[in-house]
Simulated assay, not measured.
Amino acid sequence: MSDGAQLAEIVPGVTWRGDDIGRWLTRQRRDFGRLSPEQQNRLAELGVQPAVQARKAPAAGAAKTGAARGAEAFTRGLAALAQYVHREQRTIIPRQHTEQTTVDGQDHEVRLGVWVSNQKSRRDKLSGEQLAQLAELGIDWA
Rank of each mutant, 00 (worst) to 15 (best):
Q40V: 07
L43A: 08
R27Q: 12
E38Y: 03
W141Q: 02
A62P: 07
V110Y: 02
T15G: 03
R69A: 11
R27I: 14
Q130T: 12
R95P: 08
E38S: 12
G47E: 02
R123W: 12
A68V: 11
R30M: 04
T26H: 12
E72W: 07
V85Y: 00
Q40L: 02
Q6G: 09
L35R: 09
F74C: 07
A73V: 09
P50W: 02
L112E: 05
R34L: 09
G77T: 04
R30N: 07
D20S: 03
P58L: 06
D107P: 14
I21C: 07
K120N: 04
L25F: 04
E136A: 15
T26N: 08
R111D: 03
T15R: 15
Q100S: 04
D124P: 01
W141P: 09
Q96S: 15
T101Q: 00
D3I: 07
F32G: 01
K120Q: 08
G105Y: 00
H86A: 13
R87L: 10
V14T: 11
G128N: 13
A51P: 05
D3Q: 11
V48W: 12
G128S: 15
I10F: 01
Q40T: 05
Q106N: 10
D140K: 13
V110W: 00
V103R: 08
Q6Y: 13
K56V: 02
T98D: 11
V14N: 06
P12K: 04
A135D: 10
H108Q: 00
V52P: 06
G70N: 12
R55P: 09
R95I: 06
Y84I: 01
W16N: 14
L43Q: 07
A63N: 14
V11P: 12
A51N: 04
Q106M: 08
T91E: 14
R69Q: 15
S117W: 03
R87Q: 11
L43I: 13
R69Y: 10
P37H: 00
T75M: 03
E88C: 02
Q89T: 02
R122P: 03
G128M: 01
W115P: 00
A62D: 08
A63H: 13
T15H: 07
E45V: 10
A67L: 06
S36R: 06
V48G: 11
G22I: 00
V11W: 05
A67K: 10
E45D: 14
Q89W: 01
A63P: 06
V11Q: 13
S36Y: 06
S117Y: 08
K56D: 13
T75S: 13
G13V: 00
P94G: 05
T101Y: 06
Q83D: 14
I93V: 15
S2A: 15
L7Y: 05
D124R: 11
M1H: 12
K125N: 15
D20K: 10
G47V: 09
A59Q: 07
A63G: 12
